[in-house]
Simulated assay, not measured.
Amino acid sequence: MPHPAPYAVRLTDEITRRLGQLADHLAQLPPPQAAQVIARTLDPDNGVLGGVTHLVATGSMFAKDQAGRGALPADVWLALGHASNALGDIALDMDEHIDTLQRIGAQPAATAARPPAPAPLVVRRRR
């Protein structure tokens, strides 16, 4: 049985390439379709963000095992655990906005009689 690592590396490269294509398409989509893509991407259960979070969490478990055996420095495990937690926090932050994005994505593009008023942009600082 062949070792699955070459397949996994090719799969990683393909996913990375496809994410780049998705970003290129997103930049060209009309607002309702872009909102749909963003909502699906950010879905913490079935979207790209949820998948990446799960992947990093799985990597953290691998690193923990390897650090326990002395094959990896504990810092690698801690960094992956931190990244996994941070991605989980981001997913939770974004989850509250998915309904809004889906609602915008469900609206027909040409139904607005007048364009929506721009919202003031506010920068919030985390403390």
Rank of each mutant, 00 (worst) to 15 (best):
H25E: 12
A39V: 07
P31V: 14
E14I: 02
E14G: 02
Q36K: 15
T16P: 02
P32F: 00
V37Q: 13
I15N: 01
T41N: 11
R18Y: 06
P30F: 06
A35F: 12
Q33E: 13
Q21Y: 06
Q21I: 00
P31I: 13
T16V: 02
E14L: 06
Q36M: 14
P30N: 09
Q28Y: 01
A35H: 10
I38D: 10
I38L: 15
L26H: 10
H25F: 01
T16K: 05
Q33N: 08
I38F: 09
V37I: 14
R10S: 14
R17I: 02
R40A: 14
L22F: 03
A39M: 13
A23W: 03
T12I: 05
P32I: 04
R10C: 08
L26T: 12
E14V: 01
P32H: 04
L29T: 11
A35K: 09
V9D: 10
D13L: 06
A23G: 02
V9F: 06
A35Q: 11
I15L: 14
D24E: 10
Q33G: 00
T41S: 15
P30A: 14
L22N: 07
A35M: 11
Q28P: 00
R18M: 07
H25T: 03
I15P: 01
Q36W: 11
A27Q: 03
P32V: 08
Q28F: 01
Q28V: 00
D24A: 13
R18C: 05
I15M: 09
L26S: 11
I15C: 02
I38S: 13
D13V: 06
Q33K: 07
A39F: 12
A27V: 03
L29Y: 10
Q36F: 03
A34Q: 10
A34H: 02
D24Y: 02
L19M: 12
A39H: 14
V37P: 07
R40L: 12
L11A: 12
P30V: 01
Q21V: 07
A27T: 04
L29V: 08
H25S: 07
D13R: 09
G20K: 00
R18N: 05
G20S: 04
L19P: 00
R40P: 05
E14M: 04
D24N: 05
L29A: 14
Q36I: 06
R17E: 09
L29E: 15
A23Q: 09
V9K: 07
A34Y: 01
Q36S: 15
A34N: 08
V9G: 04
A23F: 02
V37N: 08
R10L: 07
Q28W: 03
E14K: 04
R40W: 15
L11P: 02
A34L: 05
V9C: 05
A35D: 09
R40H: 15
I15G: 03
L22T: 12
V9W: 04
Q36L: 10
L26M: 09
A27Y: 00
T41M: 15
A34C: 09
L26Q: 09
T41C: 12
R40N: 15
V9I: 14
A35T: 05
D24G: 13
